[in-house]
Design a protein around this nucleic acid. Structure first.
Length: 950
RNA sequence: GGGGAUUUAGCUCAGUUGGCUAGAGCGUACGAUUCACAUUCGUAAGGUCACAGGUUCAAGCCCUGUAAUCCCCACCA
């Protein structure tokens, strides 16, 4: 196979993915139910388990992937590929989400566009219709996952409405029902009048808005006796003469006589809910109102009287200190109502119109009613004030409609035990969090968790398996029974008829089972893939999802569902702003994949990102990723060309073991170990596999050392989920070390076996992050076999450490020479001035290498007295053969340099002059400081000497 | 009100038990270049580590406080 001369990811990425998929390399190698009894690994899975499992947070089945998905996949797939290379049986389980509400909104919009409404169809019909709708749309998302390189086990894809998911959800629900954790309650729920469904607290978006706080006067009744809650009827407004509108000034002579001199003024932002008022609350400590507690006031625009009660909810500092209590339409008032056993009067219907109000207001929308109420109050002189305030208002996160707190019968989960158990396991550190602080945040959240409303009035979801009794005579039977037959509208049991609840589950109730259902966990069998090794998802889902998976996992399996949690932050635009359609700054990951390749995208989005942080992202980082891929491509082409040349010349690959260079005598530094010094001729310690190369010069020893360090650092980084750090290490090793120093040196000294070994190692190590280009190269290289995706993680390389360290000195020399040449006046100095050395074996032995790397034209021994410009090195005698005039022009730079070194020396000396430092600091640091001082002193002396010569 | 974070080079970010002269990428400036790569190579400039105290031989890192920015939860009658 021939390498194309340029890196074109678009030419091979999809073919490579198809080849992997066809070869079945994404599947775990160990099945769930082992045939041998070799898996005894219930404990200590982290290190000893042969299995590694991770699940994909399911993207919307009929949507497209956005940038956050891109990040998720890049992270999860990198982990998956890394542990696969480390030899684990790796199971990355893909998923697709029915996305209950999202999909429903899209579908309902379609329906409306065609002139229909949901209310024309029954639930089963709607479910079937949406199913078809999703089936038509489905597939894009999965293609995009493939384009991103997700090495997930496609046969195991779990859809959130799969039968096994529904089954498991029903089993859990039944267990909870039997355990008494499920109850039906009339509570205030967050209700969107447009979508006509309730939401969990967490699905509501609060926005700060300007609003008006109105002050309304409620007059005390003459007969100020306490009115017990029972005297207020639930349906107080039967159309009657009395509730007809009055003229503003007309004396009310009906039921009540008003004590006009005394009144109480309440503050409200929602005057229209006045009709649902059942009390006025004041603070017991509030001197202004103390005497009024227990008296009654007349509720304006009505013929009702309501009590004045004392409750801590009333804040004397806020408004007038008196607050009207409307338990059916306000969360706080609901609680006040419960404390005082007050009735709940619902005055707003589910579609946002007034009910249970005087006829004049009946059927108005809330806004219309508000206007009318204000107008009427004003006419009666009861509107006492109007202030504009800032307050936060709850909105539907999908359509922006103001959320109406609504009194509804719903299913609730009593979360007390669930939360308590979860907290215990979290405090027991059974789950490791990245970033760490999220553990505390989650515990804090669970400690304050309220009961969980799991009913949703959306047809597209898992039906709640509860049926309500309709046969009135069967009084002994329970009102509600559990039954799995949710495909039926009506069932009969023991002669009693029941109808199914129309509601569906909150999506998080089923999603909470994700690790359980994806891994096919069962009560009967040990499953080596549960708990998951890690749960990776967005930090914004900590409460909504992660918390619920933990509670459900513990409830169902008794074990935490995963050992570690990695939370990524939000991907922001290049300026650190949230991406949004309205701002027009949305970046589509697929566009970047098309433009720069999948690997470039993956490298770009992971780089510079740390756990839990919302961080900026720009195309530049993807370009930089593409450049690295290009570098890899060209490194490989170079090595392949050397291999080809070598095999063409010599007697085949076996001859490689003999060094092909003519410069063997020069290759090792004078300080190299042993006469032959072939450090790497030993065999591998673990298995008796002979290593395939010998090192023949210091650059080769050095690169082996650097690659070993790189391996260790990447392993460490991956263990700690420091992806960005791993990539940084790889960039440096591949680019700055391997390409810029080692390969440059190999243009002189060619060690074909070592080139092969090191290239393989680097390709494997970076494969998790750049899977396509590394596989493409692997397939192009003439000597490699199989797929890179299933290779083994590289072994440590053998090398001679002293020789490796000498190469470090050589790098220092070359860098200093380059810098000096640049700083000299004029251009092309490397060609003009010869480099001379005096009595320096390292330079002498490696003069060819130094000449090549520093790009100087000639390098000679200095014959005679020093001349030209002395290169600023403490331990090497090097001169650039520049004429005096040029050296004189360099004078300023030299002075600058002397001053700089002088400053460093001063600070070092100051440190040594501090007796406490010498006494208390670790000995090796003190020694280092001493050595550094010696070196600086030497250097400064030489530079001063040089300056004098000029 | 409760909780969590952030503040380091022009920009985006590293800097994990405190330890040599605080790093990277991008950007900038200057220079190079016939064959692995201009998606390149080399060199350089650029920092009061938000501020004020404290602990320590030693602080970007630990402690206290202040300021600014951001996120989450609750509340806002």
């Amino acid at each position: 196979m021939k390498f194309s001369s340029s890196y074109e990811p678009g030419d091979f990425e999809s073919d490579i993915y198809a080849a992997w998929e066809a070869a079945g390399v994404f599947k775990p190698t160990i099945s769930i139910f082992p045939t041998d009894n070799n898996s005894d690994g219930h404990d200590d899975r982290e290190d000893s388990s042969p299995c590694y499992s991770i699940v994909m947070p399911p993207p919307n089945a009929n949507g497209n992937l956005h940038i956050g998905h891109g990040l998720t996949i890049a992270l999860e797939d990198s982990l998956t590929r890394y542990y696969r290379l480390r030899g684990k049986s790796t199971w990355y389980i893909p998923g697709a989400d029915h996305a209950g509400f999202e999909t429903w909104v899209v579908y309902e919009r379609n329906l409306e566009a065609k002139g229909h409404t949901r209310f024309e169809f029954d639930r089963n019909e709607l479910y079937a219709r949406v199913w078809d709708f999703v089936a038509e749309q489905r597939g894009n998302m999965e293609l995009q996952l493939r384009a991103l390189g997700a090495s997930c086990s496609w046969d195991d894809l779990t859809f959130t409405l799969d039968e096994n998911v529904i089954d498991r959800v029903y089993t859990t629900f039944e267990k909870m029902w039997n355990d008494g954790m499920i109850y039906r309650g009339e509570k205030l729920v967050n209700y969107c009048p447009k979508h006509q469904t309730a939401f969990a607290d967490i699905e509501v978006e609060h926005q700060d808005e300007k609003g008006t706080l109105w002050e309304i006067e409620y007059k005390l009744t003459k007969d100020a006796s306490f009115v017990t809650p029972e005297t207020v009827s639930r349906e107080p407004y039967e159309a009657s003469e009395e509730s007809e509108p009055h003229d503003g000034g007309r004396e009310r002579t009906g039921l009540k006589e008003l004590q006009n001199s005394v009144s109480i003024v309440v503050s409200t932002t929602r005057p229209e809910t006045l009709f649902g008022d059942v009390a006025v609350a004041v603070n017991a400590e509030d001197e202004r109102y103390k005497g009024l507690i227990g008296k009654t006031v007349h509720l304006p625009l009505t013929d009702r009287d309501i009590p004045i009660i004392a409750d801590e909810h009333a804040d004397p500092e806020y408004g007038t200190g008196a607050v009207k209590i409307t338990p059916a339409h306000d969360f706080d008032d609901f609680e006040v109502g419960e404390r005082h056993n007050l009735p709940r009067i619902q005055v707003i219907s589910e579609d946002g119109h007034m009910i249970n109000v005087p006829e004049k207001y009946l059927g108005l929308t809330t806004m219309e009613c508000r206007k009318q109420v204000l107008k009427d109050l004003k006419e009666q002189g009861l509107l006492k004030g109007e202030k504009s305030i800032n307050h936060s208002v709850a909105h539907c996160y999908k359509c922006g409609t103001v959320i109406e707190p609504m009194l509804k019968e719903q299913w609730f989960v009593d979360v007390e035990k669930l939360a308590k158990t979860a907290i215990e396991h979290l405090e027991n550190n059974e789950i490791k969090f990245h970033p760490e602080n999220k553990q505390k945040v989650l515990i804090n959240y669970l400690k304050n968790l309220k009961d969980w409303n799991i009913s949703r009035q959306i047809p597209w979801g898992i039906a709640i398996p509860m049926f309500k009794k309709v046969t009135e005579e069967a009084t002994d039977e329970p009102d509600w029974i559990f039954d799995r037959r949710t495909n039926l509208k009506e069932i009969e049991k023991g002669g009693v008829k029941y109808v199914r609840d129309e509601d569906t589950f909150d999506t998080w109730f089923s999603s909470g089972h994700w690790p359980i259902v994806c891994t096919n966990w069962t009560e009967e069998n040990y499953n080596p893939y549960y708990p998951l090794n890690v749960m990776e998802t967005g930090a914004d889902l900590l409460f909504a999802w992660v918390a619920r998976m933990i509670m459900m996992g513990l409830y169902v399996t008794g074990e935490v569902p995963f050992r570690e949690v990695y939370l990524h932050g939000m991907v922001l635009d290049a300026h650190g702003k949230k991406m949004s359609k309205s701002k027009g700054n949305v970046i589509n990951p697929m566009d970047l994949v098309t433009k720069y390749g999948s690997d470039a995208f993956r490298l770009g989005i992971i780089r510079g990102r740390s756990a839990g942080m919302n961080q900026a992202f720009s195309e530049n980082s993807v370009i930089s990723g593409r450049n690295l891929c290009n570098k890899l491509w060209n490194i490989s082409r170079l090595i392949q060309s050397i291999v080809d040349e070598d095999e063409g010349e010599g007697g085949g690959p076996e001859a490689d073991a003999m060094c092909s260079t003519d410069h063997e005598d020069l290759a090792r530094g004078g300080l190299g170990a042993g006469s032959e010094g072939h450090a790497a001729s030993a065999s591998s310690p673990e298995k008796d596999i002979p290593v395939a190369y010998t090192t023949n010069n210091m650059g080769e020893d050095w690169i082996c050392r650097e690659i070993n360090d790189c391996l260790k650092q990447v392993e460490q980084s991956m263990k700690n989920y420091r992806f960005s750090e791993a990539i940084e290490t790889l960039y440096q090793t591949i680019w700055d070390k391997y390409a810029d120093w080692f390969l440059e040196s190999q243009k002189i000294y060619r060690n074909v076996p070592l080139l092969k070994t090191t290239l393989e190692a680097l390709l494997i190590v970076i494969h998790p992050f750049a899977p396509f280009v590394t596989e493409a190269i692997w397939q192009n290289l003439s000597w490699t076999e199989g797929f890179i995706i299933t290779q083994k993680w590289p072994q440590e390389l053998k090398f001679d450490p002293i020789s490796a360290q000498n190469f470090e000195s050589l790098i220092g020399i070359v860098s200093e020479v380059r810098g000096t040449l640049q700083a000299l006046p004029g251009t092309n100095n490397a060609k003009k001035y010869a480099l001379m050395y005096d009595n320096d074996s390292l330079v002498e032995d490696n003069s060819l290498l130094i000449r090549t790397l520093a790009k100087v034209s000639t390098i000679n021994p200095l014959n005679g007295a020093p001349r030209g410009l002395r290169v600023a090195l403490a331990n090497h005698e090097l001169y650039l053969d520049a004429p005096e005039k040029v050296v004189a022009e360099y004078r300023d730079s030299l002075t600058e340099k002397i001053l700089a070194v002088g400053r460093e020396l001063d600070s070092l000396n100051a440190r040594m002059l501090n007796p406490n430092y010498v006494d208390k600091a670790p000995a090796h640091l003190v020694k280092e400081t001493r050595d550094a001082i010696k070196e600086k002193e030497g250097l400064i002396a030489r530079l001063k000497n040089q300056l004098e010569l000029i």
